[in-house]
Design a protein around this nucleic acid. Structure first.
Length: 817
RNA sequence: GCCGGGGUGGCGAAAUCGGUAACCGCAGGGGACUUAAAAUCCCCCGGGGGUAACCCCUUCUGGGUUCGAAUCCCAGCCCCGGCACCA
């Protein structure tokens, strides 16, 4: 039948034809007018890729396909779907790769972008290439710099000192991931901490909002949890410990979640960097304290926070006063106390905190029980720390209170003397956006002797990243741009005096924190985003991406959106109404990696089986939100399905006219019903199984299918296999693209309903037979029929029928004794 | 350590308002077509027993609730992800 040359399914041919056709007709492109007046806008966003030299990998393809299937489905139901694509091409990744291969990133990136674009077209994504963005183009990063300036003007950007990893041999700043086991990944020299001035965005001002808004978002639960963890809200109190040795008003402030244990605070520990260390240190301890502080500074930032190392620290010789007991307690410093959390100081309660107990044991410091469990002797020695709730003991007038009441009562009592207040702290710290690197947008600030840090005037943007041949980080300790004197020497925009540009560039996460605002306005040179377009298209209806960006990217994008809303540039504060994290693709049960040599190379697969089959297979592997295990042979199933679909439709004279067969029609309506629900829920694997089942029904026993049976099938396959669907749709005699009209079939619940059901007959919960009967059969009738079933009757002999459980149209359970 | 998600045939998986476990597909076995192979088509395919009708067992392990549990509850084991000297 279908052996004739012209009639065989040749995916390469079909796909090339339709990719060209879509381009020629502008099927997936919005004109400025269309974008300005959508009837039913649907913004379908996916995380834009970093265009690596290796090209698209399966992870990208998997994510984009899942998102594209969703977008195409929405379009088939009549939505105006905007599905843009772009490239996140700045950053250390590109820079390191460029250094490695000795090609300038300004030459490398366009090549990679071109290759990615080619591969993305080939996959059949419905991308609006008229609105693509590239974060490395000056037209884009001009507005990234503009955003920095808006935040700067709103007081949300500030310059402060912060520790960085420093390699004393390479004399350069290292990112955490460039430190391997405390050593520089390039030269194996031990890494140190260094403090340098950097720009921060005050994201921590937004911690509470970022946290509480999560409740209002339709996001993958795992993603929300990751953000909650990251923000790390913690309720407690700030308590003040006076230092009478210094002066009457001097005090140390600590944050604690257990103010109820303050009576058990037997010593104090400060972070080595704490500003009061110098003042409290006794002269005879100074040498030791300094030596310890230097030792800590030599640790890299990762090693400093390692959990399983034993406690170290030194006594400063100074003392403060426990505000509850009035006792003089010693002040220590230790590296397990971190300057960036809370107040950089802790009151040590060894009886009720693991770390303090460990420290106290190591340095023989006193331990005092102040919380007792049921029936515990308050005076018994503490040989194990207890961190749970209990009754307050050895706590003066608070003895006997439960942990919860004790917290409140003790804070209230200290508050009367100005020594305590309830506080909430967050783990989230401010966003450091400075990078002492080359491949990023220069931070638009100018330093002037007279005027200080001055923003570059908006009409002078962009501050163009100069082409520097030698962009390798060097021993200057600042960005390579600091070597380009002709670039950084300028006059102050305010006073006209001598000034120099900021030579650090900004974090890549800033580029991606606002790209979704730019897409609709991608071709506008006058504004970062057009307010009218924003109003029409945003917030994003559906965002799909990897959970590896659950925290940083998604949190930063939310923060920038909130900040821009507060400043008055946006009308909403949550950018992504719905977010779904896709799963990961593994291969033969193992993670894919270049070193294992088991990465999937898409091009040969597409050549052999076509992008449609590849897309279909990827979506069929497993639940989209969980990922799946890729096996090379597996594509045979979906590929065979497409071939059979083709052969079912293509000899068009093999189709009959007239009404569909009732049994097939019922299956059709069931399939439409299932897909309509499941496609919007991204449950692709079960949708595909249903489509296969339906095709099997259409072809059962070599019957001649009716045109009315296959046309809706072609539409339902379209989100997954757009090329094939277009080809079949057009051969079925339709002039326009299947995606141009609202072609999604509707279903009739009446027609989907089964008239005959199979009822399971159980005896004592075990299935002993099944009977076919009319839908809605009464219990009496069903029971009568069941008794006639020989295998059931067997089990009813010589027993007493004790109870009958009837679930209409499902099962009948006969309980006998 | 804390917080999520998960554990079902040889494999990917389906079924989770409690109601016939294993849809769909891969791999495997058998057959048809062919000189042969590929492609295609048909049949079988969780384990055990039985000529068969059928029967017993099976959703990580052990308990529990229920007429009935992959699904709910309790305890434990294992895998994946996030956070982690966070006070």
């Amino acid at each position: 039948m279908a052996t004739d040359d012209g009639d065989r399914y040749r995916p390469a041919q079909v796909e090339e034809r339709w990719q060209a056709e879509w381009e020629r007709r502008g099927t997936n492109l919005f004109t400025a007018v269309e974008l300005g007046s959508p009837e039913r806008p649907y913004y379908n966003l996916m995380m834009f890729p970093y265009p690596s030299a290796e090209g698209l990998h399966v992870g990208n393809i998997y994510a984009f396909t899942g998102a594209d299937v969703h977008g195409r489905f929405q379009r088939l139901t009549g939505r105006d779907v905007f599905e843009p694509m772009g490239f996140d091409a700045f950053g250390i990744h590109s820079e390191n790769f460029a250094l490695k291969v000795g090609v300038h990133p300004m030459d490398l990136i366009p090549r990679n972008v071109a290759n990615f674009t080619r591969q993305l077209r080939r996959m059949g994504g419905m991308f609006d290439w008229n609105h693509a963005v590239d974060t490395t183009s000056p037209e884009y990063y001009r507005w990234t710099q503009w955003i920095f300036l808006q935040l700067f003007k709103a007081g949300l950007a500030e310059r402060k000192e912060a520790p960085v990893n420093w390699c004393p041999s390479c004399k350069t700043v290292l990112a955490n991931e460039q430190v391997v086991g405390g050593l520089c990944e390039r030269c194996d020299t031990p890494v140190e901490q260094r403090r340098i001035a950097q720009w921060f965005f005050r994201i921590s001002d937004y911690a509470e909002r970022l946290l509480s808004n999560l409740d209002t978002l339709d996001w993958s639960e795992t993603t929300k949890k990751a953000q909650q963890n990251w923000i790390g809200r913690s309720e407690g109190a700030n308590l003040r410990f006076p230092i009478p040795d210094l002066d009457d008003s001097a005090f140390l402030e600590v944050f604690t979640t257990r103010p109820d244990t303050v009576f058990g605070a037997t010593y104090m520990v400060l972070a080595p960097e704490h500003p009061l260390v110098d003042r409290v240190t006794a002269p005879d301890r100074r040498a030791e304290v300094e030596e310890y502080r230097e030792r800590v500074a030599r640790l890299d930032l990762v090693a400093r926070k390692k959990v399983d190392k034993s406690k170290t620290g030194v006594f400063t010789g100074g003392h403060c006063e426990n505000p509850a007991t009035g006792e003089r307690i010693p002040i220590w410093i230790a590296d397990y106390v971190l300057m960036e959390y809370g107040t950089g100081a802790v009151m040590a309660v060894p009886a009720h905190d693991e770390r303090d107990f460990e420290f106290a044991s190591a340095f023989e410091l006193p331990v005092r029980r102040v919380v007792a469990q049921e029936g515990e002797d308050p005076g018994a020695p503490v040989d194990e720390t207890y961190t749970g709730d209990g009754r307050a003991v050895n706590s003066g007038t608070f003895d006997g209170l439960g942990t919860h009441e004790a917290k409140r009562a003790i804070v209230a009592w200290l508050a009367e003397r100005g020594l305590g207040t309830l506080r909430v702290h967050y783990r989230l710290h401010d966003w450091c956006i400075s990078r002492q690197r080359y491949w990023g947008p220069p931070i638009p600030i100018v330093y002037c002797e007279a005027c200080g840090a001055v923003p570059v005037p908006e009409d002078e943007l962009p501050v163009v990243l100069p082409r520097v041949q030698d962009f390798k980080p060097d021993d200057s300790g600042v960005s390579p741009l600091a070597r380009v004197e002709a670039w950084y020497r300028i006059t102050c925009p305010e006073c006209g005096g001598e000034a120099r540009r900021e030579t650090d560039v900004s974090d890549t996460f800033l580029d991606s924190a606002w790209y979704f605002l730019r897409y609709p306005s991608a071709r506008r040179e006058d504004v970062p985003f057009d307010p009218e377009l924003v109003r029409k298209w945003l917030p994003v209806d559906c965002y799909i991406g990897g959970n590896e960006h659950a925290v940083l990217h998604l949190l930063y994008a939310r923060f920038i959106t909130m900040a821009l809303k507060d400043i008055g540039h946006l009308h909403f504060e949550e950018p992504f109404a719905r977010f779904r994290a896709h799963g990961l693709i593994i291969r033969d049960g193992a993670k894919m990696s270049k070193s294992k040599g088991n990465v999937i190379v898409p091009d040969p697969i597409i050549e052999e089986h076509g992008a449609d089959a590849f897309r279909l297979y990827l979506m069929f592997l497993g639940p989209f939100e969980e990922g799946g295990d890729y096996r090379d042979q597996g594509i045979q199933g979906p590929f065979g399905f497409l071939k059979r679909l083709w052969e079912t439709v293509i000899p068009l004279d093999g189709l009959r006219d007239g009404s569909p067969d009732p049994v097939v029609e019922r299956k059709l309506h069931q399939t439409i019903a299932q897909l309509t629900v499941q496609l919007s829920e991204l449950q692709y694997n079960t949708c595909i199984a249903a489509l296969m089942e339906y095709l099997n029904a259409v072809r059962a026993g070599g019957r001649t299918p009716a045109r009315a049976e296959v046309e809706p099938l072609v539409v339902m396959v379209a989100p997954f296999c757009p090329h094939l669907a277009e080809e079949l749709w057009s051969r079925l005699g339709h002039g326009a693209s299947v995606f141009e009209g609202a072609s999604w079939p509707s279903f009739d619940p009446e027609k989907a309903r089964e008239d005959t059901v199979e009822l399971a007959i159980q005896v004592n919960g075990k299935v002993r037979g099944t009977i076919a009967l009319a839908r809605g059969t009464s219990e009496e009738e069903a029971l009568a029929l069941a008794r006639k079933e020989p295998n059931v009757a067997r089990y009813l002999e010589d027993v007493e029928l004790h109870r009958v459980v009837y679930v209409p149209d499902r099962l009948l359970n006969l309980v006998v004794r």
